[in-house]
Computed example of a mutant assay.
Amino acid sequence: MESGTERPGVDTGVPSVARVYDFLLGGKDHYAVDREFARRLAARCPNLDFAWEVRQNRGFMTRAVRHLAREVGVRQFLDIGTGLPTQENVHQVAQDAAPDARVVYVDNDPIVLAHARALLTGTPQGATRYIDADLRDPDRIVELAAETLDFTRPVAVNLIAVLHFIPDPDPVVARLREALPVGSHLVISHAIDRPEFAAIAEEYQREMGVGALRPFGRIQGFFGRDGWEMLDPGLVPVALWRPEVPTMVRPGTGIFVAGVARKVS
């Protein structure tokens, strides 16, 4: 909202997770308060190019969805914590590879809901739906998603840079893993706990009351153990998950790590 236009029900006095992310991606759906917050992040961590990190995180999502749709044959995607629509949304990537792919988006931000309803339209062969629900209520998500997705067939669940915004994600992810049939996939990215990134979490906590860096082993645990196997190259910085061109992660970067796991039993 570079023009300053306000939407009903949207608090423009405090930054929003979705709008800050949009700004860092180079989008237009944000307010001055979101831009100022992003600038404070940069000032607190001058050696971290957070906009680059966010773009790399988005690139991981795109590559993972494309791989699952094109190479693995997944035709159902559940994207939780969707954020504002931007270029190469999940349904566009999946349905470009497989026009019959079915995609359900989940978010609980009113501005995301307004944009999703207006912009997230899929192919005639497939289906694209938006659910207004909270990640902390996985039973409701599964129940509503089952109106569009068939949970007796493989589903890919995307949890892209969202788990670090809820205080206790382990039971939530466990419930989602339980609901998925064999052949399904979990696609997760998460901010990792390192001293040089602590100021990022501090700023999110101070302004929005959310945000938690977690250690590598804790993030690894979200993918499950018995009955799940990680796809190569495992849990790595987002820029290093099957890059399309040779990529290096610079020292002091790599705040987001990511991976994809498949349910095998």
Rank of each mutant, 00 (worst) to 15 (best):
A174Y: 08
A174C: 08
R175L: 07
R175E: 15
L176D: 03
L176A: 09
L176S: 06
R177Y: 10
E178F: 06
E178R: 14
A179Q: 13
A179T: 05
A179P: 07
L180I: 04
L180S: 04
P181K: 10
V182F: 09
V182Y: 10
G183F: 05
S184F: 06
S184D: 08
H185P: 08
H185G: 00
H185Q: 02
L186V: 02
L186Y: 06
V187K: 04
V187M: 03
V187T: 06
I188D: 04
H190C: 04
H190E: 15
H190V: 01
A191L: 12
A191E: 12
I192H: 09
D193A: 13
R194G: 07
R194C: 03
R194L: 14
R194I: 01
P195K: 09
P195D: 11
P195H: 11
P195Q: 07
E196A: 03
E196K: 02
F197P: 00
A198R: 15
A199E: 14
I200V: 14
A201E: 13
A201T: 03
A201W: 12
E202K: 11
E203G: 02
E203K: 11
E203M: 10
Q205D: 13
R206Q: 13
R206P: 02
E207N: 11
E207Y: 14
M208G: 04
G209Y: 13
